[in-house]
Design a protein around this nucleic acid. Structure first.
Ligand SMILES: [Mn+2]
Ligand SMILES: [Mn+2]
Ligand SMILES: [Zn+2]
Ligand SMILES: [Zn+2]
Lengths: 136, 136
DNA sequence: GTCTTGGTTTAGACATAGTCTATTCACCGT
DNA sequence: ACGGTGAATAGACTATGTCTAAACCAAGAC
């Protein structure tokens, strides 16, 4: 299915600006900030305003197509991966990596007295290790 | 040991303003923001400036007496609990609760390929359940 | 007692993230 | 063409945080 139909299915009128924002943020792997999205989208659509980018991102969040994550100081980041998963943050570069849900197991959260846990995730910090080159 | 000596031990000249900030933030349970600390400290020391509060909080962090946590949108919060622990965030009120390290166990983090994990914590979200009244 | 000096405090300028408002614009149905 | 609806835009506005330059203060030297 193309992006235009995907937006319509979620009750969003597809406009050129919204398509440009959605095309980028829904496939971004880098957990961009709103101003990061603005910067990137302006390369395709140089007249787009900051307000439109913020409006569109908030709309995509309300409609469940993307979600926000609180992972960086001072700003929220956007994540097209809406299912539960964990995050690793490189303390040198600030880069954020997705960790699949099933890579980690958390035990004990169901028995916390006085807390009705609705969701959780593990935030890991450290340094990205150079991937060992694969022998071919 | 009193607070004045504790600051001196960490190489911090104890001034009235610094003592007022430290006295509050080092015993705060609510994970206050910088402006929350300012508001509270001004009740004791009404002439203290915003710059001094920010300077002092950053100094206490550099010296390892408190730490920052990225748990709230748009602002960092301060935490006198410097050892590893987890956090529960009430999605209704925004209140942040400490969860002791040993209340939860995370497995799998040691075997993540390509990631050198130096620290981690679990962030849980949900609703605080009314504590069942204790029979006396 | 006055002078000097280094560290501290202060007000305000500045930068960035984010929201809101009023105006303009684009697409429609008539 | 005209009118109405929703979207886009520029810019004002708020909040968090940093930075700078000036005022302040406590000690020590004379
Ligand atoms: Mn969907
Ligand atoms: Mn210590
Ligand atoms: Zn993610
Ligand atoms: Zn804490």
């Amino acid at each position: 299915m193309n992006l235009q139909d995907q937006l319509r299915e979620h009750g969003i009128q597809p406009t050129p600006q919204r398509l440009a924002v959605a095309a980028y943020v829904m496939h971004a792997r880098e957990h961009p900030t709103a101003d990061g999205v603005l910067e990137r989208v302006r390369k395709q659509c140089p007249t787009v305003s900051r307000a439109t980018v913020y409006n569109t991102l908030n709309l995509l969040v309300r409609k469940g197509l993307i979600r926000t994550q609180v992972l960086k100081e001072g700003t929220v980041v956007f994540d097209p991966h809406v299912e539960s998963h964990h995050h690793f943050i490189d303390t040198d570069t600030g880069s954020i990596y997705d960790i699949p849900w099933h890579a980690l197991t958390v035990s004990g959260h169901a028995t916390l007295r006085g807390f009705d846990v609705q969701e959780y995730q593990v935030i890991l910090r450290g340094k990205r290790r150079a991937a060992r080159p694969r022998r071919r």
